[in-house]
C-alpha cells in the first residue's frame, strides 16, 4: 500500500448527502444550506445521547431517500461520533438492516468515513457505501467538559461542539467524485490544553497536507478550496504558519468548517465550531452544494481529530491528533 497519497482507480461518486443540525447551527451563516434543522436540540428524545442517535438515523434516512434508493441498496454503513464506544452511531443506526462498521477518528471521522468508503468502492468490495458522522454539543460537553448548566468561563481558544450530523452515499452516480485520499499518521506535539484543540491538531493536519503535496504533481493553487475540519480560528492560523515554513502556501484558498459554521461576532463561540458533526454537516450541506452548482470544482478536505479522552486528560497526558485527507472533484480531470 502507498503510505502517501492513494489514487482511487475506480473513484466513487457522491450520490447524495443529507445533513441535520440543531438550533445554534441553524442561526449561523450556513443555516439555509442544511437539509434539516431542529429547533429542539433533543430531537424529541429524553436524553442528549438519544438525540445524537436520532440525528444519525435522520441523516441516513434523508440521504437514502434523497438518492431515490432504499435500505437494501446500501451495502455497508461506516459511521462514527464522539461518544464512548460510538453509541451515537450504533444505537442510531440499529434499525437499518445493513452491515455496520463503527469508526472513531474524533473530528476526523467524516474524512475517515469518506476515505474508507471510497477504498471499499474502488476495490470492488461495495457498490454503495453510506458514511455517517455526528456530534452533539450537549452529549460532548457532558463527556469531555462540565455539566451544561455549570457556570464556567470559556477561554478564547476553546471551540464549540457542533450539534449536527451529515450522511454521504457513495456509489456510481453523481457529479462529484472522491478521487484521492491520504490516511494520516497520528502526531503528538505536546499540547495538553483541552481548550486549545486547534493547536493540538494543526501539526498533524500540516503533516497530512505535506504528504499529499510531496509527490509534486499538484500545488495548493490548483484547488478551488482547501477546507479543514475543524481547526477553528486558532488552529487554522497555526496550520498556515506551519505549512508556510515548509514552502506550502494555502493562505489564499484555505478555510475551516469550524470557521464557517458560526457567526464569530453574533454567536460568541470563541475559536469556532468543532466536533465531527461540524465537518460532516458543513461538507454535506454547504461544500457539496457549492460543488454541485459548479462554484467549486476541486476541493481538498482534511478532517482533523484530537484523540484524547477525559481520563488521559486527567492523567496529564498530551493530546495526539490525526488528520485524514480526501480530494473531492467535480471537474472532468
Amino acid at each position: 500500500m502507498n503510505k502517501g497519497k492513494i489514487v482511487f482507480n475506480n473513484p466513487p461518486k457522491i450520490i447524495s448527502t443529507y445533513s441535520c443540525v440543531g438550533s445554534e447551527e441553524q442561526k449561523g451563516p450556513l443555516g439555509k444550506f442544511f437539509s434539516y434543522c431542529s429547533e429542539d436540540n433533543k430531537f424529541g428524545k429524553d436524553s442528549w445521547e438519544k438525540a445524537e442517535s436520532e440525528m444519525q438515523r435522520l441523516a441516513l434516512y434523508g440521504a437514502i431517500k434523497k438518492a431515490g434508493l432504499c435500505e437494501t441498496d446500501i451495502d455497508i454503513l461506516l459511521a462514527g461520533d464522539l461518544l464512548n464506544q460510538c453509541v451515537g452511531s450504533s444505537f442510531g443506526l440499529l434499525e437499518y438492516d445493513i452491515p455496520y462498521v463503527g469508526l472513531y477518528g474524533a473530528c476526523s471521522t467524516c474524512a475517515l468515513g469518506l476515505a474508507l468508503g471510497a477504498s471499499l468502492y474502488s476495490g470492488g468490495i461495495a457498490k454503495r457505501v453510506a458514511a455517517i458522522t455526528s456530534s452533539h454539543y450537549c452529549s460532548s460537553e457532558r463527556q469531555f467538559r462540565f455539566p451544561l448548566e455549570y457556570g464556567g468561563q470559556r477561554t478564547p481558544t476553546s471551540q464549540w461542539t457542533v450539534t449536527g450530523a451529515g450522511a454521504f452515499i457513495l456509489g456510481d452516480e453523481g457529479r462529484i467524485s472522491v478521487k484521492e485520499a491520504v490516511f494520516g499518521i497520528s502526531k503528538d506535539m505536546g499540547i495538553k490544553d483541552i481548550n486549545n484543540l486547534g493547536a493540538a491538531m494543526a501539526p498533524s493536519c500540516a503533516e497530512t497536507i505535506k504528504t499529499y503535496f510531496s509527490e509534486g504533481e499538484k500545488s495548493p493553487s490548483d484547488f478551488d478550496l482547501i477546507i479543514t475540519g475543524d481547526l477553528g480560528y486558532e488552529g487554522s492560523d497555526i496550520l498556515k504558519d506551519l505549512l508556510l515554513a515548509d514552502g506550502i502556501d494555502i493562505r489564499k484558498n484555505h478555510t475551516d468548517c469550524g470557521i464557517l459554521v458560526y457567526d464569530r461576532k453574533k454567536q460568541d463561540k470563541h475559536a469556532g465550531g468543532s466536533g465531527c458533526g461540524c465537518s460532516a454537516s458543513v461538507m454535506s450541506a454547504y461544500v457539496i452544494k457549492k460543488m454541485e452548482e459548479g462554484e467549486l470544482g476541486d476541493v481538498l478536505f482534511i478532517g482533523t481529530g484530537a484523540l484524547m479522552n477525559s481520563l488521559t486528560m486527567c492523567q496529564g497526558q498530551s493530546i495526539p491528533a490525526i488528520s485524514h485527507l480526501v480530494r473531492l472533484s467535480s471537474s472532468e480531470v
Partner: peptide
Amino acid sequence: KKEYTEYVEKKSK
C-alpha cells in the same frame, strides 16, 4: 515539542 508548545503559548489568544 518544546518549541511548538512555546510557539502555541505565544500565539494563542
